[in-house]
Design a protein around this nucleic acid. Sequence first.
DNA 1: CAATTTGTTAAATATTTTCTTCACAGTTTC
DNA 2: GAAACTGTGAAGAAAATATTTAACAAATTG
Lengths: 189, 189
Amino acid sequence: MTDSHHQDEWRESLEGAKDIIIDSLAETMDLYGVTRSVGTLYGTMYVEGDMTLDEMREKLGMSKPSMSTGVRKLQEFNVVKKTHRRGKRKQTYVAEKDFFRFFTNFFTQQWEREVRTNLSAIESAWEQLDMLIQSEEAEESIKEEAREIQRILSQSIKYYKWLSRLVESMETGELFKYIPIEEDDEKER
Amino acid sequence: MTDSHHQDEWRESLEGAKDIIIDSLAETMDLYGVTRSVGTLYGTMYVEGDMTLDEMREKLGMSKPSMSTGVRKLQEFNVVKKTHRRGKRKQTYVAEKDFFRFFTNFFTQQWEREVRTNLSAIESAWEQLDMLIQSEEAEESIKEEAREIQRILSQSIKYYKWLSRLVESMETGELFKYIPIEEDDEKER
DNA sequence: CAATTTGTTAAATATTTTCTTCACAGTTTC
DNA sequence: GAAACTGTGAAGAAAATATTTAACAAATTG
């Protein structure tokens, strides 16, 4: 690292640091099924603060419809919200910067959906299996397999109930009593 | 539903019930970035019990290399393990049927990776920002932005530490003390 | 109310990902 | 040790996704 940076080079270095953060957030979100470019968009908003679609487009060098759909996905995950700059016409969007809230919002949304989807599937499968089990005609071997599946399903119902309670404890903040957020022991500023 | 089913039709009905479960599991896993066909594979193993690659291939009507890579993915997520049927030559694989363990294994693995990736990124970004802040030459406005980013990052470090503790509490089972698994209040059988 | 601007939809294009076929290396069996 | 079989890697084909361009509808300004 030389001693004779121009300001542009310092600026470049700052942007480089941002990019390290952005890329790593995008990679992480990729793990959770958020596409990489949507992750990059989130990361950008995370380090840049609130932005308009045009600012995003310029920053990421992508088209505006891409930004529009990207932002919508992030809103669906509950990690980006609309805001507005007073006096301004353009809509602005702001990313959730508090990762505790990110975590809560994101997984709450996913887990609730998981519970709904799967409980409803279990319900209809269960009925169908009942019909089979109660029929006079069906072979015993088939009935036995149906009962076996019901046994497995009844186990999984417990899980979905538990998952609901986990979600609830995140929403109420109860979870953070059990697993506390460690306070900052740095000198504050 | 008619009264005159053949056994084949009852069998069909049983398979239908399975498929409802399989599809719903696959859809759920899709939410978490597990591809749909890998989710279907998991679901199949979930309802069918342990299987060989050839059994999977036959059941899903896909090629063997697909099964091979699918199973490997599921192993990476820690939700499928190798087993063997005694006396048999073919390798068999078994899906984790206990969703509590599925949950723990899957998210533990993801979250640990998230922590590692992002903490390491924060570390290098932080150094780069420090260099900038401590330089004599860089403009104050740039330095100020660098400090602002460090403030944000120091908040997020708290989050990653918390996430590590959450993972730990899942691994030790501590979490299930706080948010207990409700016991089965159905009449057992 | 005409002219601009903003955000979104639709169609096309490009890119990425998934899947299959083929080949082969490592094991097991006789 | 030859023959058969199992699992996986590589290359290409097929399918799914993401991205862009173009067009438009709604809102805003002068």
